[in-house]
């Protein structure tokens, strides 16, 4: 716990204008985006103030695109104006983040598009892997590039904090799961905080699978307190703290075509890769014989629902056997 390494934090911020507009207009507990950004900056400052070696990267997910807002390894764009009333690293962080957010929002974005949360998380992973590889190659040479284990780097406890306001997006399920699994492989903790909107099952599963914590914000005006209490301490210190845990994670699945909850379904043992959605056609569902119902795609279910026994979607592989080419037996 008491090491001379800093801890690395990547923060992924969901900045969907539409959702933030709704959050600001919320009747019970409104939170405007400018209030959010100032609380976020206070939290980020707290992280770099904790320890001199702590590193930080900030990513933002805008509708349809994701950008890096700040990285502590980046050289400053331009010399930051000296302000006698503020600590220079704080000043640099604050001005860079706000300037880039303003620049991105000024550029043309299509607010109706969903937030590119997956892209932002993937970028955070790429950055972590690159920086770990760079210190790795300085330490010792590992010829096997396929083994991107951060094992030796455990001291720095890389983690990703996702601050989301958007609901789950069904189409991003597979990509988001892929990034979660690679985070798991690289021993990166994913913390998630849903600030507004419905609970997100994807982020719940992300936190569960990587050993992080998931938090649903009830009192949005207390955001900074939530952030500092539950997400500021690095994972080794959290072991001795009582951080919020998830009680119930639903692992049931639903098919993509009907979003029906499936307790028991049949699953194709093999499938074709396709760029299209894996549920291209929906033949009539036969309720009589359960063995004929199956779901190939599994969208996690939001909440425990009333008993569904045999409901499942049908999935027919797009390609017929004629598309199968025996010449491709070998990979």
């Amino acid at each position: 716990m008491d090491n001379h390494f800093g801890s690395h934090l990547s923060v992924v911020v969901d900045l969907s204008p539409a959702q933030w507009h709704r959050a600001a207009a919320d009747r019970d507990s409104p939170l405007a985006v400018d209030a959010f950004v100032s609380q976020l900056l206070a939290f980020l400052n707290a992280h770099i103030a904790l320890k001199h070696e702590n590193s930080l990267a900030v990513f933002a997910a805008f509708p349809g695109k994701s950008v890096m807002l700040y990285a502590s390894t980046d050289p400053p764009d331009r010399p930051t104006p000296i302000d006698p009333n503020s600590y220079p690293p704080f000043k640099r962080l604050d001005s860079t983040v706000t300037a880039r957010i303003t620049a991105q929002l000024a550029a043309d974005i299509h607010p109706e598009e969903p937030s590119a949360l997956v892209g932002a998380i993937t970028k955070a992973l790429c950055c972590l892997s690159c920086s770990s590889r760079h210190c790795e190659s300085n330490l010792l040479f590992l010829p096997d590039i396929n083994r991107l284990s951060l094992g030796h780097d455990e001291a720095s406890d890389p983690r990703i904090l996702v601050l989301s306001v958007s609901p789950d997006l069904a189409t991003s399920y597979i990509p988001i799961m892929n990034s979660i699994f690679s985070a798991q492989k690289l021993k990166i903790t994913i913390d998630a905080c849903q600030i507004f909107g419905p609970d997100t099952v994807f982020l719940q599963q992300a936190a569960h699978l990587t050993g992080g914590s998931y938090l649903y914000l009830d009192r949005r005006d207390a955001l900074l307190q939530y952030l500092i209490m539950s997400f500021l301490p690095p994972p080794p210190i959290r072991k001795v703290l009582a951080v919020p845990t998830q009680d119930r994670i639903d692992f049931r699945a639903a098919c993509f075509c009907h979003k029906n909850i499936v307790d028991i379904g049949s699953c194709a043992q093999s499938a074709y890769p396709s760029s299209a959605s894996p549920c291209p056609s929906v033949p009539p569902v036969e309720q009589s014989s359960p063995s004929k119902h199956y779901s190939v795609s599994m969208l996690p279910v939001r909440r425990p629902a009333p008993q569904h026994q045999t409901v499942a979607g049908e999935y027919t592989p797009v390609s017929s056997s004629s598309e199968w080419d025996p010449g491709h037996q070998r990979i």
Binding site: I249, F251, A253, S266, Q269, P304
Partner: peptide
């Protein structure tokens, strides 16, 4: 397709 299928259950944790 039924010949290609496998029954699966999704548990509750």
């Amino acid at each position: 397709p039924a010949a290609d299928l496998m029954m699966m259950g999704f548990p509750t944790r």
